[in-house]
């Protein structure tokens, strides 16, 4: 089950507690890579549309647990791996996954779910070549309750609609502290310097390998507020 395959391409994982920052970091890496002559694609959260359909279907019934949401995240990630991530990796290209494993692990952990359970669940996903972390902004604020932005914002809507803002804020702080100390590998903080470091490492690996003509395969960011 575990993805032990070594791919010729590079997978850059970008995780964070706020989707806006994650997407901005992914875009910054993509722009910097393109400027240095390396083509890349971005695989974004909910490319499968599962969460979108869930939001539509669960308008009147938001009785869902963080465990179920983690399972749906895993299904979405399986979709992204099949259609967006693995094809690029197999072709020797560069793909940015925004978001990837650490986001769901840290979020689940902040809600009291066993992090090891989530890691085992997602063991079908390949290890990223580089693990980046978006620079956390507006850390004093809770998650925006929006179903169209990112996983944490979506979960904030679905999990506890009646919770006071401070509860959501506390959970976000816990999540940030978990992202600060991921298990097994150190994440690069994706400020301007971090982005350049990622580009440098990626270029080094990409030199000599075939660039992927994958720009068109990028999943689009979710459309704006409905």
């Amino acid at each position: 089950m575990a993805d032990q395959v070594t791919y010729p391409g590079s997978l850059i994982a970008v995780d964070g507690s706020r989707a806006k920052d994650v997407n901005a970091a992914a875009n910054a890496i993509a722009s910097a890579l393109k400027a240095s002559g390396v083509e890349c694609a971005i695989s974004r959260w909910d490319a499968s549309g599962l969460f979108n359909e869930l939001a539509e279907g669960a308008r009147n019934d938001r009785n869902i647990s963080v465990r179920s949401l983690s399972l749906i995240y895993a299904a979405d990630l399986a979709f992204r791996l099949r259609w967006e991530i693995r094809p690029v990796l197999e072709a020797g290209g560069v793909i940015i996954a925004a978001s990837y494993i650490e986001t769901v692990v840290a979020f689940g952990g902040s809600c009291g779910l066993d992090e090891q359970w989530i890691r085992q669940l997602l063991r079908f996903a390949p290890e990223p070549t580089i693990h980046g972390r978006s620079k956390e902004r507006k850390t004093q604020r809770p998650w925006k309750r929006r179903t169209d932005r990112g996983y944490c914002e979506f979960a904030a809507v679905m999990l506890d609609v009646s919770a006071p803002k401070r509860a959501s804020h506390a959970a976000r702080r816990v999540m940030i502290s978990k992202l600060d100390h991921p298990r097994g590998h150190k994440a690069i903080e994706l400020d301007a310097k971090g982005v350049q470091a990622v580009v440098k490492r990626t270029r080094k690996k990409a030199t000599g390998s075939r660039p992927a003509a994958a720009s068109q395969q990028s999943s689009r960011p979710r459309s704006g507020r409905k």
Binding site: S68, L71, A74, A78, R82
Partner: peptide, 10 residues
């Protein structure tokens, strides 16, 4: 196969 399995798990 994985998606099929995970959605049934949900």
């Amino acid at each position: 196969i994985e998606e099929y399995s995970l959605l049934h798990a949900v």
